[in-house]
Computed example of a mutant assay.
Amino acid sequence: MNNTEDHDHASSLLLVRDAMNRTTADLPALPDLSGPARAQGLRRRARVRAAIGGGVLTVVAIAVAGAVALPDSGWGATGIGVAAQPSDSRPQPQPQPPVHLEPSPGESSMADLPADERARQEQFQNRAVPVLQGLLPEGVGTLQRTDLSVRLYQGTKEGKTFTVVFSVRPTGSDTDPRTCLEVKGRTCKKGALPDGTEVIASTSPVNDGDVTESRIFFRYNKSNVSLSVSPHDASHTSAPVTNDQLLTLAKASAFLDLVKAADAAPVEEAQKILPAGE
Results as ranks from 00 to 15, higher is better:
117 E>M: 15
132 L>A: 07
130 P>Y: 10
116 D>T: 13
123 Q>F: 07
121 Q>P: 04
132 L>M: 14
115 A>G: 02
119 A>M: 11
113 L>G: 03
144 Q>V: 06
111 A>S: 15
115 A>K: 11
141 G>T: 06
113 L>F: 14
119 A>W: 06
141 G>F: 10
128 A>F: 12
122 E>D: 08
123 Q>K: 13
129 V>R: 00
131 V>S: 02
136 L>Q: 06
143 L>Y: 02
136 L>H: 04
117 E>N: 12
142 T>C: 00
121 Q>M: 15
122 E>P: 00
112 D>Y: 03
112 D>L: 10
109 S>T: 12
115 A>N: 03
122 E>T: 10
145 R>K: 15
142 T>G: 01
135 L>V: 12
136 L>K: 04
113 L>Y: 14
134 G>T: 01
128 A>T: 09
137 P>W: 05
141 G>A: 09
124 F>E: 02
124 F>N: 00
118 R>Y: 06
125 Q>W: 11
128 A>P: 09
133 Q>W: 05
110 M>R: 13
134 G>C: 01
140 V>K: 01
122 E>Y: 13
141 G>V: 05
134 G>S: 13
117 E>Y: 13
114 P>C: 12
123 Q>W: 09
130 P>R: 02
136 L>R: 05
110 M>C: 11
120 R>W: 08
134 G>A: 14
134 G>I: 01
128 A>N: 07
115 A>W: 00
132 L>K: 02
127 R>G: 12
111 A>Y: 04
123 Q>D: 09
127 R>N: 11
117 E>L: 15
139 G>K: 00
124 F>Y: 15
126 N>M: 02
113 L>W: 13
123 Q>C: 07
118 R>N: 10
123 Q>N: 10
119 A>T: 10
145 R>N: 06
132 L>W: 01
130 P>C: 08
113 L>V: 05
109 S>K: 07
118 R>Q: 15
131 V>Y: 03
116 D>A: 15
109 S>I: 08
116 D>M: 10
144 Q>E: 09
118 R>L: 10
116 D>C: 00
127 R>F: 14
133 Q>A: 15
143 L>S: 00
124 F>C: 00
142 T>I: 04
119 A>V: 03
145 R>Y: 04
145 R>L: 13
133 Q>L: 03
121 Q>F: 08
121 Q>L: 14
135 L>W: 09
114 P>Q: 09
144 Q>Y: 11
129 V>S: 06
130 P>G: 05
136 L>M: 08
122 E>I: 13
136 L>Y: 03
118 R>W: 07
128 A>L: 08
128 A>R: 03
137 P>Q: 07
124 F>P: 00
143 L>F: 03
114 P>H: 10
145 R>E: 05
135 L>M: 08
138 E>F: 02
122 E>F: 15
127 R>L: 12
121 Q>V: 12
138 E>S: 14
132 L>V: 06
128 A>W: 10
139 G>I: 04
109 S>Q: 04
142 T>D: 12
141 G>L: 07
137 P>D: 05
